[in-house]
C-alpha cells in the first residue's frame, strides 16, 4: 500500500493541521510516512504545499515524483491546479471551492472551477459553507479532510481519533464541532 498526497493552499490557511491529523492517524496504524513541509518565506501569503507519503514499506524520497500523487487535497481552488503535474492517472483532485484572493490578477472563479472539472477525478466542496453550518468557518480544513477521506487509505475511526488528539487541549465542544465537520465533509461524496 502506498498513498501519496499533496496538500496545498495559501500560507496562513493552515494545511499543516490537516497534515497533523493524517500523521496521527498514520502512526496509529503503524504506517511509514514522510511529510515535507514548507516553512519560511512563502508562509507570508504565498503558495504553500506539503508532500505527504504514507506506505506500509519505508519511504525513500521526501518528495513525491511527478505523476504519482494519489490525491491532491487543496483548501483553495487555484492552488489545487498548481500541482497537477504530480497527479497520477487515476488520482483525485479534491478542493475547496472558495477562492483566497490576495493578488491583483486572481482569475475568474467560474473559469477556475471549469478548469478543475476538466480533471478526470475531481471533487469540489464548498467547505466554508459546510463549516459555518457546523459552527465555525475555522473547521473548513477538517471538512476538506473529511471529503478527501475516501481517497486516503486510513480507517475512518483513526481519522476521528486523530481529530480528537489534535483538538484535545481545546475542550469537548471544539472536538465535537470538528468531528461533525469531518463527517459533513465525508458526506460530500458517495462512492
Amino acid at each position: 500500500m502506498k498513498n501519496d498526497i499533496i496538500l496545498s493552499g495559501v500560507g496562513g490557511q493552515g494545511i499543516l493541521s490537516i497534515a497533523a491529523v493524517i500523521g496521527y492517524a498514520a502512526v496509529e496504524n503503524n504506517l511509514y510516512l514522510k511529510q515535507a513541509e514548507v516553512h519560511g518565506m512563502s508562509q507570508r501569503g504565498g503558495d504553500v504545499q506539503s508532500h505527504f507519503r504514507l506506505s506500509d514499506e519505508p519511504v525513500a524520497s521526501d518528495l513525491i515524483p511527478y505523476g504519482e500523487a494519489d490525491l491532491i487535497l487543496s483548501v483553495e481552488p487555484m492552488e489545487a491546479l498548481r500541482y497537477l503535474p504530480w497527479l497520477s492517472e487515476n488520482g483525485w483532485l479534491v478542493t475547496n471551492s472558495n477562492p483566497y484572493v490576495n493578488i491583483p490578477d486572481y482569475p475568474d472563479s467560474q473559469d477556475l472551477l471549469n478548469e478543475i472539472r476538466k480533471v478526470k477525478n475531481n471533487l469540489i466542496v464548498d467547505a466554508d459553507t459546510i463549516a459555518r453550518k457546523t459552527g465555525s468557518i475555522k473547521a473548513a480544513n477538517i471538512v476538506m479532510l473529511g471529503a478527501a477521506s475516501h481517497f486516503i487509505n486510513l480507517p475512518w475511526k483513526s481519522l476521528e481519533n486523530a481529530v480528537r488528539k489534535l483538538f484535545g487541549r481545546k475542550g469537548e465542544d471544539i472536538i465535537e464541532l470538528n468531528l461533525e465537520a469531518l463527517a459533513a465533509g465525508r458526506d460530500q461524496y458517495k462512492a
Binding site: V10, M41, G46, A69, S88, N102, D105
Partner: peptide, 20 residues
C-alpha cells in the same frame, strides 16, 4: 522514463509572498 500528470493550466497565476 518518469510519469507526468497534467501541465499547470495557464489560468494559474503566481502567488508571491506579501506583507500581511
Amino acid at each position: 522514463e518518469s510519469a507526468y500528470g497534467i501541465d499547470i493550466p495557464d489560468i494559474v497565476m503566481k502567488r508571491p509572498p506579501s506583507l500581511c
